[in-house]
Each structure stands twice: as structure tokens, then as C-alpha cells.
């Protein structure tokens, strides 16, 4: 067992973990953060995507021991005071999910992508989501949702809205 100290969704945790424990299993089994899901055995699907020190990673290909001293944001850490993150809201508004299994990873990756490029075109969105697979939607509404969120998260638009801290989005 190795002791780690890690900040997850704004809360600090100290835990003893086996070195072979994957970050995704630590989040789900130890912290109960089952919003982050496992969709494959090959690191292809992206369903397990979280932010590690501000960058998107697949939490099935990082060991929990490696995040000692780091900050993790999961899908469960996005909403503020009962208000959905603009990306979550955009997925809701645009009907960007069917079964919803890919959604946590899609949303985390979409937020990362807007951090790199707050004003992407459709092609940039599609390429930015190439590591996230969806078996249901055919991606059309997912792409629409991300473009919608980008529009709403632009600083000028946001200034007119009620201020609340959100993660990512180049803000």
C-alpha cells in the first residue's frame, strides 16, 4: 500500500492504495464517484475521461499512485450550487445523449477541447472528440452541443449571465 494525497472535485483525500489500482477504480470504488465509467479494455473509448491537473486523461490508463499531490476533476465536480456546467446544460438542451454511457467522458473531453480552442469549428470539435466513442447518437447532436456550449461560454456572453465559477473553457 502506498499513501496518496489527492484533491478530487475540490475535496482533499488521503488514502492508502495498492500501486496496481487504476485511477478509475480508485474514483469509483474508493470514493464512490461512479459518474466516471469504464467502457472498454483497450483505452480507446474515453468514457473514463477526467481532468488531471487541468488536462484530460483516460483514468483507466493512469495508476492512482501516480496522482499523489495532484488535482482531479470528474463529471461529478462540474455543477456549482445545483447549477449545471454550461457544457452539461448544452448536452441536455441539444439532446446529445441516448443511453448516456459515453456522456461523462464526452463532457470532460469537450471542456478540455474548449480550453485549447474556445471558438472551434465543427471539424475541430470532431477531431477533439476522436478519443471518445459513442455507440448511440451518431455524434451529430454531441457536436452541436459542444458548439452551443462554446457559444454560451464566450466571455462576452458569460458576462451578461449570472457569474459562477466553471472549470475549463479558456476562462
Amino acid at each position: 500500500m502506498t499513501r496518496i494525497t489527492v484533491m478530487v472535485d475540490g475535496v482533499s483525500y488521503v488514502d492508502d492504495v495498492e500501486p496496481r489500482t487504476l485511477l478509475v477504480h480508485y474514483l469509483r470504488d474508493k470514493l464512490g464517484k461512479t459518474g466516471t465509467v469504464v467502457g472498454c479494455d483497450t483505452s480507446n473509448c474515453g468514457a473514463c475521461t477526467v481532468h488531471l491537473d487541468g488536462r484530460s486523461v483516460k483514468s483507466c490508463s493512469v495508476f492512482a499512485v501516480q496522482v499523489d499531490g495532484s488535482e482531479i476533476t470528474t463529471i461529478e465536480g462540474l455543477a456549482r450550487d445545483g447549477q449545471l456546467h454550461p457544457m452539461q446544460q448544452a448536452f441536455h438542451d441539444n439532446h446529445a445523449l441516448q443511453c448516456g454511457y459515453c456522456t461523462p467522458g464526452m463532457i470532460m473531453q469537450a471542456i478540455d477541447l474548449l480550453g485549447d480552442n474556445p471558438d472551434p469549428d465543427e471539424q475541430t470539435v470532431r477531431e477533439g472528440l476522436e478519443g471518445n466513442l459513442c455507440r448511440c447518437t451518431g455524434y451529430q447532436n454531441i457536436v452541436r452541443a459542444v458548439l452551443d456550449a462554446a457559444e454560451k461560454m464566450k466571455p462576452a456572453v458569460r458576462a451578461q449571465q449570472q457569474p459562477s465559477t466553471v472549470v475549463g473553457g479558456g476562462i
Binding site: 500501486p19 496496481r20 487504476l22 479494455d41 490508463s61 493512469v62 495508476f63 501516480q66
Partner: peptide, 26 residues
């Protein structure tokens, strides 16, 4: 050695390799 883990971790998960020690360079 463990670097980015993007090849090694999938290999370990599938138990195609079973090293007794990982030396993380991160």
C-alpha cells in the same frame, strides 16, 4: 520503466506482462 503509460498500462491490464516493480519517470 513507466513513462506515459499509454502503451504499458493497457499491456499490464491485459496481463501480457507482469513486472514486479514499476519505476515511474514522471
Amino acid at each position: 520503466i513507466l513513462a506515459g503509460g499509454q502503451s504499458l498500462v493497457p499491456v499490464l491490464r491485459l496481463r501480457l506482462a507482469a513486472p514486479t516493480m514499476l519505476v515511474d519517470l514522471n
